[in-house]
């Protein structure tokens, strides 16, 4: 399959990239891992005049931990996230590890996943559940945007054409915090989820009470969504089956699935319930494991 014609630039710094992007406006598309963008070009869904390869931008690379916060570079690949490390929350590693295939994970980036903003994106869901913020650099400097509110539609976010997503900021992994990730597809690999759920639980020091919870749902709305009902069913309650079931019900009720050739809305809604429950159990077990390990 042929790629359409385009010009290729590889800026060496963020200011250079932003200035090029400013000059070329909508004609240019930033290129990170290319696992989505190049496919869309080949399928003639997009025809930018210029590809701006972000691969040379040091500002978008490397992870930093500072004052309880972690900053992850937009060019972090799914493979590197999946292999974990001290800065990478377990939930994010799980989602990144469930993405595509090894070859795709070696190219696909954190930033690309957030910008492409597919409804079932394996990296977006954990980040949303983790309460992450995206850092968007533009001609007038940087702004931080919470991911809750960042997604607008399939492939459509609050990021403006002249902006580049440079980093993601989230809480550093700590004791009493756990995540669960559940993905339902036909195959065991190379799947876009029929439904996926990321659950994040933070326990009080008692190791039982839910201090904070977020449940993110995939493939059941035009973009990755949080279930506020699930969160409020959990927060302040003892982390156990009763409130997990309530949270799962709330998530199923709030999901907005549609019928398409991959699955019916009704099935997806039922699966939100099942996967939420499973993700919460997984999150609890991880949170308690963390706490014990620390103790």
């Amino acid at each position: 399959m042929l790629l359409p014609s385009f010009d290729y630039y590889r800026p060496q710094s963020l200011p250079e990239a932003l200035s090029l992007l400013g000059e070329m406006g909508e004609d240019a598309r930033p290129l990170a891992g290319g696992t989505d963008l190049l496919v869309n070009l080949k399928l003639k869904k997009l025809a930018p005049k210029v590809l701006l390869d972000l691969g040379g931008l040091e500002e978008l690379k490397g992870n930093r931990a500072d004052d309880g916060l972690v900053s992850l570079g937009a060019l972090d690949t799914a493979s590197r996230l999946a292999s974990g490390g001290p800065e990478v929350p377990g939930l994010l590693a799980m989602g990144a590890g469930a993405l595509g295939s090894p070859q795709v994970r070696n190219r696909a980036t954190l930033g690309g996943n957030l910008v492409t903003a597919r409804p079932a994106a394996d990296i977006c869901l954990p980040l949303l559940a983790l309460g992450a913020k995206a850092v968007l650099a533009g001609p007038n400097g940087e702004r931080e945007v919470a991911l809750d509110g960042y997604f607008k539609g399939p492939g459509y976010t609050v990021k403006e054409a002249g902006e580049i997503l440079t980093r993601v900021i989230l809480d550093a992994p700590r004791p009493g915090v756990g995540g669960g990730y559940q993905k339902l597809g036909l195959r065991q690999a190379m799947e876009i989820a029929l439904v996926n759920v990321a659950a994040h639980l933070e326990l009080e020091d008692d190791g039982k009470t839910v201090a904070l919870a977020r449940v993110a749902l995939g493939a059941v709305a035009p973009f990755p969504m949080l279930s506020p009902g699930a969160a409020s069913a959990l927060i302040g309650k003892p982390a156990q089956e009763t409130c997990f079931s309530e949270a799962a019900e709330a998530a199923a009720a709030e999901a907005r699935p549609i019928d398409d050739h991959r699955g019916s809305a009704a099935y997806r809604r039922d699966m939100v319930r099942t996967l939420t429950l499973r993700a919460l159990r997984q999150a609890l077990s991880q949170a308690q494991g963390n706490q014990e390990a620390q103790a």
Binding site: Q188, A189, E191
Partner: peptide, 11 residues
């Protein structure tokens, strides 16, 4: 072959 699913080695 992304949406017409033939088995992968993991299946």
């Amino acid at each position: 072959l992304g949406e017409y699913h033939i088995p992968t080695v993991m299946d």
